[in-house]
């Protein structure tokens, strides 16, 4: 069974994200786009995880609590946790490792903490978009010890990427997946980087705006989980974690917007959905 995911999404807690990135907006957009699971990955903080997890549960969307941790080498590491409790534990440790630099809203933007009704209940005063004192190795050990998975973020970019900052992927780190960014040409990238053949690539949006959230284009397969007949899911989609096809983004957004009213209503979780019963833990097990 293949599930459509977007494992790198920011909320309005990240100062660089648009303030429309509220818990309900993120979840509703993900539902409209037809995703099965999303991860919330704000910079160095899990302060909005609980609100988004409540909204996701209300919409029957599988939610992976996460964080984009910035190591001291300025590498962005998508850290995905099996549950809220372990994610909040990571949040505490990362927060301790953040330098005491105050956010400058005029330069970086606001860092809103929100509840499940999209109300602003606080503002993070400490600057979140900076390096922690944790090494990349430490982030890996920490997240692994919490039962989570780490995916080095946007390795195709020239900033904050493990490859740009370290020159290569350290072999000693237990890495299975590397994230490529939304507009990366997967085949050209593969061709240009034969040294990465041992790694799987997964596309995530790194959404800072609602429209950035992926269509059903980044798939994770969980073998042994039965596909529903009505789902039409067949073999031959490609490799695990590879994309299912060439989604026409604009057409997808148009289609999604036609269903705005429907999706904005709180819905009972659909027990017949292909993702019914799927847990963050099952997805994480595929990623490690």
């Amino acid at each position: 069974m293949k599930y459509a995911v977007d494992l790198h999404i920011h909320s309005a807690l990240s100062p660089c994200a648009h303030e429309d990135m509220t818990p309900n907006n993120i979840v509703n957009m993900a539902v409209m786009k037809g995703l099965d699971a999303i991860a919330l990955t704000d910079h160095n903080s899990g302060a909005n995880l609980e609100a988004v997890s409540i909204c996701a549960r209300n919409q029957g969307l599988v939610f992976i609590p996460g964080m984009e941790v910035e190591s001291c080498e300025e590498i962005h590491l998508i850290s995905l946790l099996p549950d809220l409790k372990s994610a909040l534990k990571l949040h505490e440790i990362v927060y301790e490792a953040l330098p005491a630099i105050q956010n400058r809203k005029d330069i970086f933007g606001s860092q809103y903490i929100m509840d499940e009704n999209d109300q602003i209940i606080g503002e993070e005063k400490r600057l979140l978009v900076t390096a922690t004192s944790l090494t990349a190795d430490e982030v890996f050990s920490l997240v692994t010890s919490l039962g989570g998975a780490v995916i080095p973020a946007h390795v195709d970019r020239s900033s904050y990427s493990m490859i740009s900052n370290l020159g290569l992927i350290p072999e000693e780190l237990k890495i299975k997946y590397l994230e490529i960014s939304k507009n990366c040409d997967r085949y050209a990238y593969r061709a240009a980087h034969p040294e990465l053949d041992g790694y799987k690539l997964i596309r995530s949006s790194d959404a800072h705006y609602l429209g950035d959230i992926l269509e059903r284009e980044s798939m994770i397969e969980i073998e042994g989980r039965a596909a529903r007949e009505a789902d039409g899911s067949t073999d031959g989609f490609g490799l695990i974690g590879e994309e299912s096809g060439q989604a026409d983004d604009m057409a997808g957004i148009g289609e999604a917007l036609r269903h705005v009213d429907e999706a904005s209503r709180i819905r009972e979780p659909d027990k017949d959905k292909p993702s019914a019963g799927l847990t963050a833990c099952e997805l994480i097990n595929i990623l490690v």
Binding site: C72, E73, E74, P99, I101, T130, A131
Partner: peptide
Amino acid sequence: DLLSWVMS
């Protein structure tokens, strides 16, 4: 070239 280092 390490932004956090330069910043501090």
